[in-house]
């Protein structure tokens, strides 16, 4: 199934709010479903089919929160967060997985991931997580000069 112009990054305008929530998942159906749910909760979203396209995307700097699948080919959700943490601008990140396990959860929360959610997502928990992440906003460490990935 080849889409003639399959773009790795797509974005949906729901509210002209300015700040975006990135939905990153390699599975298209899961991605669309989560994006729809997050939009229905009142946020403006855009979708990426992987961690690398997100990092390369220009929308990255307008992203206020990342909702990413953990298990993805190439860069995993957790690795993406690591990458963001090393760059100058740490975007609050919510990870989701269909295969939750305590160890990953503990290590993810330890490195500062905002939420560790089990698929299928519970809308109330997701909303609570999104609100908390939204409130904290992107963190800019003092050594922001080291941001070389831009």
């Amino acid at each position: 199934m080849i889409e003639a112009d399959a773009s790795p990054v797509a974005w949906t305008m729901t509210k002209p709010d300015g700040a975006l929530i990135a939905i990153i998942d390699d599975d298209a159906a899961a991605r669309d479903a989560v994006a729809s749910l997050v939009s229905a909760l009142g946020y403006q979203t855009f979708t990426c089919n992987g961690a690398a396209p997100f990092l390369a995307s220009g929308l990255r700097h307008e992203t206020r929160c990342v909702v990413a699948d953990i298990r993805m080919p190439g860069m995993s959700g957790l690795e993406l967060y690591g990458q963001l943490a090393r760059s100058g601008r740490v975007i609050p990140t919510i990870l989701m997985t269909a295969y939750p396990d305590e160890t990953t959860r503990a290590s993810a929360l330890a490195v500062g991931v905002h939420g560790y959610l089990t698929k299928p997502l519970d809308p109330e928990i997701l909303l609570a997580c999104l609100r908390a992440a939204w409130k904290s906003g992107p963190l800019i460490p003092r050594h922001s000069a080291t941001d070389t990935t831009v």
């Binding site: 669309d32 479903a33 749910l37 229905a40």
Partner: peptide
């Protein structure tokens, strides 16, 4: 199945 549940939740929210 996961996507179906999420879509259903999204639909309900909409």
């Amino acid at each position: 199945l996961g996507s179906m549940v999420t879509n259903a939740n999204a639909g309900l929210r909409w």
